[in-house]
Simulated scan of single mutants.
Amino acid sequence: MIKIGILGSTGSVGTQTLEIVRNFKDQIKVKLLGASKLSDALLSQIKEFKPDYVYVERGESEKIGNTKVIVGEENLNFLKDLDLDLFVIAIAGIKGILPTYILLESCKKVATANKEAIICLGELERGKYKNILPIDSEHSAIFQIIDRKGTENVRRIILTASGGPFLNIPLKDLENVTLSQTLNHPKWVMGKKITVDSATLMNKGLEVIEAHYLFDLPYEKIDVVVHPESIVHGMVEYTDGSVIANLSYPDMKIPISYALFYPERKFVNSNFLDFTKIKSLNFIQPDYEKFPLLKFAVECGKKGGMYPTLITVADEVVVNLYLQEKIKFLDIQKIVMEVVNSFSVEDVKNVNDLLDFIDKVQKYTLVVAKKYGSS
């Protein structure tokens, strides 16, 4: 029996993880669930899966049946004492940093879809990512290809981007796109924040930084191509010129399942590739003029230090403002770039320094955003 915990269990990745658990109840036991609050969705999950522990960011400590409810980030150290086979980090955004840090410091095995934690902890946790199984489809694809082989003979890895909903829309028409248009992703069903990042291609820039830390590869060995069909999720080119690719229809349950049962593979659904029906696979150079945040994020990654954290945090704040319809779509890139170019970075020596730095960036970003109509 595989004992797991899921932090962020009511979100997109968390609910899809639990869909897999339902199909393998004789092999997986959920011992921990976590969410921001005791919502109806979380209470329903508690009733169904009967975990030993539930973590919520805010609320009251209590017991629900035999389930102990633990409240507040200040009490997250309880994770150190849990003897589980795998912790799934399905928390969205920078809220995933502290639990990821605690688990990595405790040498726990972690499956994560939280790129923000990987990026922001990258300088502090170098060498400790060997306990991570990536759930992002692109990083899972690369991991599956190079797993146990190492990267010595890798010439480059190639991450694919769908191009988002605005791939074929001229730059001049992006000025007035609506939030509903932005959230209408052509291929993937994801959380709102990552869907917006996909529309700006910022998501792919962050994934390049994430790949740098996860696979310990220099940025010169990480490329991005736009692949509208979203069939090829990642490729590895070796020094002899051969390329190995990971292909499947877009379905997050595939990389989630691989992480849960690693190194085994389990049946997820019957949506297998039919190559006779795939008319073409297209690969396009990203349009850096229309989507400047992709290139800008990679530049921040190459600068190193706190620049990857700076752009990651600024983007999260700005995207949240956009989701509240306080700014326009093109304001996202303007504000993020202004924040990065004007904020004074500082050295960070420990996780408390990191969290203080993040708090400063959040506040500064809100100040900058006011010039663009945010209140």
Score class of each variant (00 low, 15 high):
Asp274Gly: 01
Thr200Gly: 10
Phe267Gln: 11
Ser248Leu: 04
Phe215Cys: 04
Ser280Asn: 14
Ser248Gly: 03
Met235Val: 09
Asp240Ser: 08
Lys221Cys: 02
Tyr262Phe: 15
Arg265Val: 08
Phe267Lys: 13
Asp251Met: 03
Leu273Gly: 03
Leu260Arg: 00
Pro218Trp: 11
Val243Leu: 11
Ala245Gln: 05
Asp251Phe: 09
Lys279Tyr: 02
Met202Thr: 05
Ala259Val: 04
Phe267Pro: 06
Glu207Ile: 04
Ile222Thr: 10
His212Leu: 07
Gln285Cys: 14
Tyr262Trp: 15
Ser270Gly: 15
Glu264Ile: 05
Ser257Tyr: 07
Lys253Met: 10
Thr200Ala: 12
Ile209Ala: 07
Glu210Val: 00
His227Ser: 01
Gly205Asn: 02
Leu281Gly: 01
Phe272Met: 10
Ser242Gly: 10
Gln285Ser: 15
Val236Ser: 01
Ile222Ser: 08
Asn282Cys: 08
Ile254Val: 15
Asn246Met: 11
Ile209Asn: 09
Val226Ile: 10
Pro255Arg: 08
Glu210Cys: 05
Ser230Asn: 14
Arg265Ile: 11
Lys221Leu: 09
Pro218Leu: 12
Ile209Thr: 06
Ala259Glu: 09
Ala211Gly: 13
Asp274Pro: 00
Glu229Phe: 08
His227Asp: 02
Ala245Gly: 07
Lys277Asn: 12
Ala211Val: 10
Pro255Leu: 14
Ile231Arg: 00
Val225Thr: 10
Val226Gln: 01
Pro228Met: 06
Glu264Phe: 15
Phe283Asn: 04
Pro263Gln: 12
Asn269Gln: 12
Ile244Gly: 13
Tyr249Asn: 14
Gly234Thr: 07
Val226Glu: 01
Gly205Thr: 02
Phe215Tyr: 05
Glu264Arg: 15
Leu217Ala: 06
Thr276Cys: 02
Tyr249Asp: 06
Phe272Pro: 07
Leu214His: 00
Met202Trp: 12
Thr276Met: 10
Phe215Gly: 01
Asn269Arg: 12
Asn271Ile: 02
Asp240Cys: 00
Ile222Arg: 02
Asn246Val: 10
Val232His: 09
Leu217Phe: 13
Tyr258Leu: 14
Phe215Asn: 05
Asp274Lys: 08
Asp223Lys: 13
Glu207Gly: 03
Val225Leu: 15
Glu220Tyr: 13
Val225Cys: 12
Val243Ala: 08
Met235Glu: 02
Ser242Leu: 12
Met252Tyr: 11
Met202Pro: 07
Lys221Tyr: 11
Pro218Ser: 04
Gln285Arg: 14
Met252Ile: 13
Lys204Cys: 01
Asn246Trp: 12
Ser248Asn: 13
Val225Phe: 13
Tyr238Trp: 09
Tyr238Met: 03
His212Lys: 09
Lys204Ser: 03
Lys277Glu: 07
Asp251Tyr: 12
Pro263Ala: 03
Asp251Glu: 13
Asp223Met: 12
Asp251Cys: 07
Met235Thr: 03
Tyr258Trp: 13
Phe267Met: 11
Asp274Cys: 04
Pro228Glu: 09
Ala259Lys: 08
Met235Tyr: 01
Met202Leu: 14
Arg265Gly: 05
Arg265Thr: 14
Tyr213Asp: 09
Asn271Leu: 08
Gly241Val: 00
Pro228Ser: 07
Tyr238Ile: 08
Glu229Arg: 08
Val243His: 05
Met252Gly: 12
Phe261His: 06
